[in-house]
Deep mutational scan, measured.
Amino acid sequence: RKWEEIAERLREEFNINPEEAREAVEKAGGNEEEARRIVKKRL
């Protein structure tokens, strides 16, 4: 699934746990840019 690939990239890029990465992607509706913004806000 594409969402899992996005979550994996976010996890590696921001050094967050898989659960946090998945939550961000879900919140963003699968949009990678939006997920990235969500993760950055949390850091």
Rank of each mutant, 00 (worst) to 15 (best):
41 K>T: 07
33 E>S: 10
30 G>Y: 04
15 N>P: 11
8 E>W: 13
37 R>C: 09
12 E>L: 14
40 K>Y: 15
19 E>I: 11
3 W>D: 05
16 I>E: 00
22 R>E: 08
39 V>E: 02
35 A>H: 00
5 E>L: 12
41 K>G: 07
39 V>W: 03
15 N>T: 07
2 K>I: 14
38 I>K: 04
11 R>F: 06
30 G>Q: 02
27 K>S: 14
10 L>I: 09
31 N>P: 00
38 I>L: 11
19 E>S: 11
14 F>I: 02
2 K>A: 13
23 E>C: 05
15 N>R: 12
7 A>S: 06
6 I>C: 03
28 A>K: 01
15 N>M: 11
12 E>V: 13
29 G>Y: 10
34 E>K: 09
28 A>W: 01
43 L>M: 07
5 E>W: 08
23 E>R: 07
36 R>G: 03
8 E>I: 12
24 A>F: 05
41 K>M: 06
43 L>S: 03
24 A>N: 02
38 I>D: 06
15 N>K: 14
11 R>K: 09
22 R>C: 06
40 K>P: 02
9 R>Q: 07
39 V>N: 01
7 A>C: 09
24 A>M: 05
31 N>F: 05
35 A>Q: 00
9 R>V: 06
1 R>W: 11
25 V>T: 05
23 E>Q: 08
9 R>C: 06
35 A>E: 00
12 E>W: 14
17 N>T: 14
40 K>I: 15
13 E>I: 06
30 G>I: 02
16 I>L: 07
20 E>R: 04
14 F>H: 03
31 N>M: 07
21 A>Q: 00
41 K>S: 07
37 R>T: 08
31 N>Y: 06
7 A>R: 03
21 A>Y: 02
7 A>E: 11
16 I>T: 03
11 R>Y: 07
38 I>Q: 08
37 R>F: 07
39 V>G: 01
19 E>D: 14
7 A>K: 04
15 N>A: 11
22 R>P: 00
43 L>R: 04
27 K>T: 14
29 G>A: 13
12 E>I: 13
18 P>S: 14
11 R>W: 12
3 W>H: 07
11 R>C: 04
14 F>R: 00
7 A>Y: 06
16 I>C: 05
29 G>Q: 12
21 A>C: 10
24 A>I: 13
17 N>G: 13
43 L>I: 09
43 L>N: 04
34 E>N: 06
36 R>T: 05
9 R>W: 05
8 E>L: 14
29 G>P: 01
7 A>T: 08
25 V>F: 03
17 N>S: 12
28 A>F: 02
1 R>S: 13
18 P>W: 14
2 K>N: 12
39 V>M: 04
12 E>A: 14
29 G>M: 13
17 N>R: 13
8 E>Q: 14
1 R>Y: 13
32 E>M: 09
24 A>S: 05
6 I>P: 01
40 K>D: 11
17 N>Y: 09
2 K>Q: 12
19 E>R: 09
10 L>K: 00
23 E>K: 08
34 E>V: 08
19 E>N: 11
29 G>V: 09
5 E>F: 07
22 R>Y: 14
4 E>D: 11
22 R>S: 08
14 F>P: 00
40 K>M: 15
30 G>P: 01
34 E>Q: 08
33 E>W: 09
13 E>Y: 07
42 R>V: 15
4 E>V: 08
15 N>G: 11
35 A>K: 00
24 A>K: 01
40 K>A: 13
9 R>M: 09
21 A>P: 00
36 R>V: 07
2 K>S: 13
1 R>C: 07
35 A>L: 01
16 I>D: 01
38 I>T: 05
35 A>D: 00
14 F>K: 00
20 E>Y: 07
14 F>Q: 02
28 A>E: 01
42 R>C: 04
19 E>M: 11
17 N>W: 09
8 E>T: 10
35 A>F: 01
26 E>L: 11
39 V>K: 01
31 N>H: 08
34 E>I: 11
11 R>T: 12
41 K>V: 06
40 K>N: 12
20 E>M: 15
23 E>T: 08
29 G>W: 10
32 E>W: 13
27 K>P: 00
21 A>E: 00
19 E>V: 09
12 E>H: 12
14 F>V: 01
31 N>V: 09
24 A>P: 01
27 K>D: 14
8 E>F: 13
37 R>V: 07
3 W>E: 06
3 W>S: 04
15 N>I: 04
26 E>N: 08
14 F>L: 04
3 W>N: 07
18 P>Y: 14
25 V>M: 05
37 R>D: 14
23 E>W: 12
23 E>L: 11
10 L>N: 00
27 K>R: 10
8 E>G: 09
26 E>D: 08
31 N>T: 03
13 E>H: 06
19 E>K: 11
26 E>V: 11
38 I>R: 04
14 F>G: 01
4 E>F: 13
22 R>L: 13
11 R>M: 15
5 E>N: 07
23 E>F: 09
36 R>L: 04
16 I>G: 01
12 E>G: 11
4 E>R: 11
7 A>W: 05
1 R>G: 13
25 V>C: 05
32 E>A: 07
14 F>N: 02
5 E>C: 05
33 E>G: 09
43 L>G: 04
23 E>A: 09
13 E>D: 07
20 E>T: 07
5 E>V: 09
28 A>T: 05
21 A>R: 00
20 E>L: 14
24 A>C: 07
34 E>G: 05
5 E>A: 10
32 E>N: 03
11 R>L: 14
37 R>I: 08
4 E>Y: 10
5 E>K: 08
11 R>Q: 14
14 F>T: 02
33 E>F: 09
36 R>Q: 05
31 N>W: 05
43 L>T: 04
31 N>A: 05
39 V>Y: 03
29 G>T: 06
13 E>F: 06
21 A>G: 03
1 R>F: 13
20 E>S: 06
27 K>L: 15
10 L>D: 00
12 E>K: 15
23 E>D: 15
39 V>D: 00
36 R>P: 00
25 V>L: 10
